[in-house]
Design a protein around this nucleic acid. Sequence first.
DNA 1: GTCTCTCCATACGGTTCCGTATGGAGGTGA
DNA 2: TCACCTCCATACGGAACCGTATGGAGAGAC
Lengths: 222, 222
Amino acid sequence: MVVRKPRLGPDDWTAAALTAIGEQGLTGVAVEPLSTRLGTTKGSFYWHFANRDALLEAALSSWDETYTDAILRTVDAEPGPVARLRALFVAVTASERAPVEVHLHAAADHPAVAPAMRRAVARRTAYIAAQLTALGFDQAEADRRALFAYATYLGHIQLVVRIPEAVPTGAALEAYLDTVLAAVLGTQDQTGTGASSSAAAAGRASDSSANSASSNRSSLSP
Amino acid sequence: MVVRKPRLGPDDWTAAALTAIGEQGLTGVAVEPLSTRLGTTKGSFYWHFANRDALLEAALSSWDETYTDAILRTVDAEPGPVARLRALFVAVTASERAPVEVHLHAAADHPAVAPAMRRAVARRTAYIAAQLTALGFDQAEADRRALFAYATYLGHIQLVVRIPEAVPTGAALEAYLDTVLAAVLGTQDQTGTGASSSAAAAGRASDSSANSASSNRSSLSP
DNA sequence: GTCTCTCCATACGGTTCCGTATGGAGGTGA
DNA sequence: TCACCTCCATACGGAACCGTATGGAGAGAC
């Protein structure tokens, strides 16, 4: 019986490239190894793509959609800022997304990767900051805390991928997430920035009653 | 006039390797490029080292001493836990150490790098946790917060190196550091872990009066 | 001076990848 | 059926490395 050899399209290559990034980082995006893996040859690849960089661009574009757009859409359906932030934290930590994220951030010196990372960081921190301003923090404090949260996220997934034994699991991870979320939302009585403690307290108080405007949905495109 | 050609020793190669790691990561540790850079040839290298991995090991060993031992010794001379933590934060963020740290963490999947990173993470988080227990936090809470702090550090230096425009500078960086330090030291009234708020308050109160034992110096080797 | 040991230069083969050239195999429309 | 168009296989040249082999150049011991 002859094995059916389904013909490949560009999407097959970009998907394989993203998988390879998750496993080996940018060096995994190599034409000849990917060819072997897909059971085909370089001839196929260079029919669909001009060169390796073109494949990388396509993979990064796909990453944009899957790893930022999609998740922010999902999280934004939650009923309030605190619920959105919590859902975001849970979604991005407990998953198989981490390896791709870590490897891509680690390759941000590559000229094709750098702009993609800049876009992602800007959009993600802006989204977090928007939730925080909705809770009453002024813009500067919201930006500061959003960056703080994002840095913690970055370090966390890095530890998960590189030194997994250093990161707690199960209930301990839950407690850890509570610690982080409380730190991001919590009041701060040391600096004189004037983040209203009432807003922070309201944020901690409940997940379902912290809407600040008429819409139940925050803006997604800053 | 003839240019003096000083003969090289192993240390010259390891220093060059560390510099290359800071600039290009592990791929910078390549024999032929390093040879060109040092104005010599491969023949010199393979006299001093068995192979590329041997050079990498030597560079990692040097990194251990410079980037963990030395800095913890310096910081530990500060008068109290809070001062130590603050000095640690300042030392590790505002410096040229970041690129090497980031590139090495990014290469923690390499079999030679992985154990070095595990050692470093373990020692550093243990040191932070020791300061926190000295402030009255119980071990579990101290471990949690130490990991939290280390994750934030990791993410921060990564942003500094990869997306520098996302990170504040000058006074804004100071405020940002205050935010982080307050989050690590601050009280936390949400989970029921029982970290005594008085200890946290004492930690916030002053830098010079928080010694918990007779010695002015905390233990360095957990 | 010359012996010897340390250190380096040069040349070579091997591996892994990129990109090109070129010749088909197999389906599709007229 | 037959020309054509899409897709893939194979072969080749080149670049950037790693590691080995071997022949010196220089400096100190005597």
